[in-house]
Design a protein around this nucleic acid. Structure first.
Lengths: 234, 234, 234, 234
DNA sequence: AATGAATGAGAGTTCATTCAT
DNA sequence: GATGAATGAACTCTCATTCAT
């Protein structure tokens, strides 16, 4: 078989696999986890029931592919979300905005990860791998800021990460569950403000020594003033 | 029927209902959501399958009772967790410690709430009601602190709440999923520190730097005065 | 519940279980192993599909019950088949006749044992237990004959048993497969004859023919002496 | 196409066919009947699934080819097993030894014949043909012995054959099922001994009547001797 | 001749729920 | 109120076979 034909064939298979994953995603989003049956997915993807099993070992594998596809997509987008900001706080804000917007839009797909995990249908290792890969976006931003001295260095990365994602996810969940009006900006601004306060590099002014320095400087200036002869004119 | 007998009877029924809920809880914790069948619950509660349906309309209702019982239990405990602290930060710390400890111990029961909700088996209204009731613990502490002026007043309660519970839940989930060693104290201390920074009342007057600022301003004024040509009058 | 009612209930259940086993047997005999589906058995037993699973863990268990029921039946009959004969050879003949007649009639049920065993659907232990129980009929007859000195004692029981059942089963199978006319009597008589010869007690020195040999030798000597001319002296 | 090329091509096809049969045999022996799938056979034979169907009409045909190949192999070997013995009992012993050894080694392939037959997947006619061809080895030995008067002539061949193969197969199956230690020699020797006794040409001397006859004849001679007048001379 | 992706009928099994007792 | 045998719809998954390439 010529290489081109092989390539074309492989492309076709990959396209079909993607189509199946998309069909599964659609069915899940429409009908919910419990009513997502293989038969329905097959119908939607316009293939025979058995065909699903040529592409995925079983239902679990297919649902995990749905999850994987989503994490891949958002990890990619998340990386883009920070690319234009080089200042730490700007990057954090951009990522926070992207993250919560995504959550509000795709929360059911994120939930799917949790459902599969809770039901012990997805190995822990996989569940955490996706998340780790995604949250490395924050990690990179954070570490860069540390290097540049943009933020204080005594807060462990993991705590910062927990605060960042935790706050956003909880806020998103509250909104989704409560069907309250969306207030992305308010949430983002608030989180960034807290981070700005809590993670700011210790402004030299707030340490005791700095204060003493400044006081002494002021006194020195006073002294110089007072020792100056009053000059007429100037 | 004499009242006492009726009372006794009702007690007996309530005891049985509680026994069924306990049995369901045990089965769920032992076998996981998928393998929690009505038959197994009945076996564990030492009643016939059909009996479950005299106490609960269907499986969903029973599982929701499991969830309700847990939220009731922890809401009660959470209220106690703050009772001994009257200072805002002490109360927050105590509650944070209680909350994450509970999560690490009973995460499967919290997950059950989510699973039921995700599966559209528990009406949104119920899911949120339990949570709201529980999180009112934080709300009360926060509002009291606001009243007393212990914290700044420009951070909306809901954002503070999202940050508090969100951070802790994310941290707990990370620990549970990653099987990393538990570090309750580190998480709690860090969260409290961030809150202390981010939520402190911006009383310009009492902080050291404000004093320095004022001093410095005064010095500046002195400087400007002293360098000014002495004018007669004025 | 009164004892009688309980008894009645249990009877009813046992009757139903037996009815299911009978239905399964019928379907198997009619349609063959491959086309024996649980749905068909349920239909035949006039119960719902699920009901089968209240009585038997799975299809395998049901098919094994079919096998077990048959072995129980024929073991019982086989015991009766020898009860009227107290002579070894009569008993062997009666049992042989019963055994091959049963095989020709119920060979498909015996085959079922083998099929389940071959397909590793029936644990070895069970497969052998039924057979051992059944073949103990022969063992008892054989051991009694040994005690009574009806047969020689140097042929191990297991070899005798292999020869007895092996010959009959092979003969039956040949007949069934070849659709040759049935010739139970010829097979039985022949087997018994071989056993009579091969297992007869071979009292070496005390055997009748040895005595005859010696007698005859003596007579021959007598003859030779008497026919000799009387010689003086010598 | 030149003849040689055609020959080569046909050879190639036959080699491939044999390779497929071998692969099927291997899979069956390794995985058992139920897990022997066409896909697995194709994988093992290193051809595509569809290719199997250019060589064999369907799965049945392929499995029957497996069986046929085995019967052909052992029929050939069985013929060799008797070639060096010209005495009946030696030939029987050699063949018995070969037969049971083969059964213990290849019982799964013999079972395969039965399974296919039991499942009505192999036409009776084929099943019996292989067996008949194989057992003709015994038939020839037996008939030659009859011609030579080595054995009595009143036992029909088919009964002798049933006893021979039946005993060995039953013994083999018992050993295999029971995982008892192998005792080929004991089985063979015992079978040959029984045959020696049961099929020996009827030495007139060993039956009771014959003994009585001989005794009476001897006595008669004695009487005639004693009643004879002693004659002088002679 | 060879491929292997696609097929789809059909299997065994589960389990929440019912209802006669 | 309590029972537990009975239900049957619904599910996932298998695999021999086909046929366009």
């Amino acid at each position: 078989m010529p290489l081109d034909a092989a390539q074309t064939k492989r492309d076709r298979l990959e396209k079909k696999e993607a189509a199946i994953v998309d069909a599964a995603t659609d069915v899940y989003l429409e009908k919910g986890f419990e009513k997502t049956t293989m038969a329905e997915i097959a119908r939607r993807a316009d293939v025979a029931d058995g065909t699903l099993y040529t592409y995925f070992k079983n239902k679990n594998a297919l649902m995990m592919a749905v999850v994987a596809a989503h994490w891949a997509r958002i990890t990619d987008e998340a990386n883009k979300s920070i690319s234009s900001s080089d200042n730490f706080f700007d990057a954090v804000e951009a990522h926070a905005r992207y993250h919560i917007t995504m959550l509000l839009k795709d929360w059911r797909l994120i939930d799917l990860s949790y459902v599969l995990y809770y039901m012990q249908r997805m190995p822990e290792i996989e569940a955490t791998a996706y998340k780790r890969e995604y949250s490395s976006v924050f990690d990179r931003v954070y570490n860069r800021a540390l290097d540049r001295g943009e933020i204080r260095s005594d807060v462990p990365l993991r705590h910062a990460r927990d605060l960042f994602y935790g706050t956003l996810e909880y806020a998103a969940r509250t909104q989704v569950q409560g069907r309250s009006k969306q207030e992305v900006e308010s949430i983002v601004k608030n989180l960034v403000a807290v981070i700005r306060e809590g993670f700011a590099p210790s402004k030299p002014s707030t340490t005791r020594e700095a204060i003493v320095d400044r006081l002494e400087a002021a006194v020195a200036r006073l002294e110089s003033v007072s020792s100056r002869k009053p000059t007429s004119g100037r």
